[in-house]
Write a protein that binds this DNA or RNA. Structure first.
Lengths: 95, 95
DNA sequence: AAAATATTTCACAAATTAATTAATTAGCCT
DNA sequence: AGGCTAATTAATTAATTTGTGAAATATTTT
């Protein structure tokens, strides 16, 4: 890896390396979820989820669509899906 | 992933997500290197490399052996090797 | 034993990250 | 329009991370 790539990938990893954000990504693996649904799953405040979502959005990892006054989030980058699957295989062999 | 696994994996990712540490891991993919060799490659101070190595060691990602007054470092966890390879395929398709 | 080399440890300042609360925006419904 | 719900933004504070330089440790060499 070249230095630029190192920088880009480390930023990506950093944005995935917070437990709340990693959990969000896991939840979004196979479904889209609203901010409120995510908030309930990760058990924190609305504002906190919103901020974490923003970090993932600014990295281009997730995208959202608006429906009424709900915002549905989903993973846009297929490479992230692959990476999460790989981590699952490597580090969570049972289940 | 269960919550405990989420926590464990996010710690792992966090330790890999600093550019210096990611570069160290890339360098150690196929060879063992002394602290000084790593210092030259990543262009920082000895103390800084030493501290980053400690973070990787305490995560069980790398190990070292002593030879004279050199310390040679290598990756111990094969899963880390696989993960790095996957990231390389996904995010650095050319080269 | 002293000097030199390789690495680590320590203490500190600067920068970044994270959670919390309150305020704000946006869209729906009656 | 006014009230309600969903989500975001902003400001503040606490905690963590990072890099640096100096001192310490360990081993080799002279």
């Amino acid at each position: 890896m070249k230095d630029e790539q190192i920088d880009a990938v480390s930023k990506l990893l950093k944005s995935m390396s917070h437990p709340i954000r990693l959990k969000i990504l896991c939840l979004l693996q196979d479904q889209e979820l609203s901010v409120g649904e995510i908030r309930d799953s990760v058990k924190t405040t609305n504002a906190n989820v919103s901020q974490h979502l923003n970090i993932l959005r600014s990295q281009g990892i997730i995208d959202f669509r608006k429906d009424a006054n709900f915002i549905y989030n989903r993973i846009t980058d297929k490479r992230i899906l692959e990476l999460i699957q790989k981590m699952h295989v490597l580090f969570c062999p049972d289940n």
